[in-house]
Design a protein around this nucleic acid. Sequence first.
DNA 1: CGACACATGTAACACGTTACATGATTTG
DNA 2: CAAATCATGTAACGTGTTACATGTGTCG
Lengths: 171, 171
Amino acid sequence: MGVREGLLALLDDGPRYGYQLKTTFEGATGGVWPLNVGQVYTTLERLQRDGLVTVLDLDDQKSYELTAAGREALGAWWQTVPVDDPPPRDELMLKVLLAIEHGPDHALTVVTRHRTALVSLLQQRRRADGAAPDSLAARLVADALVVRAEADLRWLDLCESRLTTDVGRKP
Amino acid sequence: MGVREGLLALLDDGPRYGYQLKTTFEGATGGVWPLNVGQVYTTLERLQRDGLVTVLDLDDQKSYELTAAGREALGAWWQTVPVDDPPPRDELMLKVLLAIEHGPDHALTVVTRHRTALVSLLQQRRRADGAAPDSLAARLVADALVVRAEADLRWLDLCESRLTTDVGRKP
DNA sequence: CGACACATGTAACACGTTACATGATTTG
DNA sequence: CAAATCATGTAACGTGTTACATGTGTCG
């Protein structure tokens, strides 16, 4: 549910054609999220099917346009605050939780390995973040990656402390 | 790529049958990540197809077992530190970035709306985290949700400051 | 001319989700 | 007995990813 809404949002600025949507999407996201053109067209097809978008068939190019329903759906998206319930499965969490099933020793191994890797990744990202201010979008994405990595790191620390103190009692 | 490895990891403790995998998966993840039984069977089919798992056809129940290749794949998974490149598309980020295309005013609206929602969500999660220590797994998941929400909040603050100071210059 | 950007698609595949169908066993 | 749990699947659908095919225009 990402590309779909993305295209809707871009079409809110007026009719666009497929390839244009690809490039502006990539531009808006600071070039961090490449978008295969093919997916743009298939997604547009689905949006048509769902009545959120119509096509203006011009000479040789096709122009896509929001319908009233599409504008409504977009409005709903802007209003909605995404709260995932159940939360999306995350690979790091999953790995640690499953490692616990194999015993706290294995879990601690996994935790420390990931922490050292995350520390270097974080340094790397901080450098990238501090350096070239490409665009506002790229900057914000870089910020997000740093903040996320910090959060993961903090969580790993929490895991370690809980694993070392709570050893023995697993209700 | 979550369920697949999850099942492999669980099968490392010995042969299991499908339904058992569902319940132990949900148990290992503190009941936070429900897993549809149907998906267990389809995933096991794919794992068979890929030669990572074999079936022991007993009287009326089927028991699944890791192959050598399966054990190897699992080992690789344990060793691997997940670094997504490009990073996965995140709805919050996407929304803010696309809102910027519509002008900083719209972006600021989105940012502040999400911040207030996140603040209350965070309080709620902190309560849940501080309360009943269900199991180690449930506790760790709750921790993760809190830490993630804090990170998102921090990022939104960053967005706001960048949006208010960087206004005007978008290279 | 040759490479590259522009422009539009199709096909195959992977994974996840939900709903549906079926039957055995356990337990209140 | 009735309901819940255990147990195994199938079918349909949605989305995302990659690769492939095709053609036009532009620019060095």
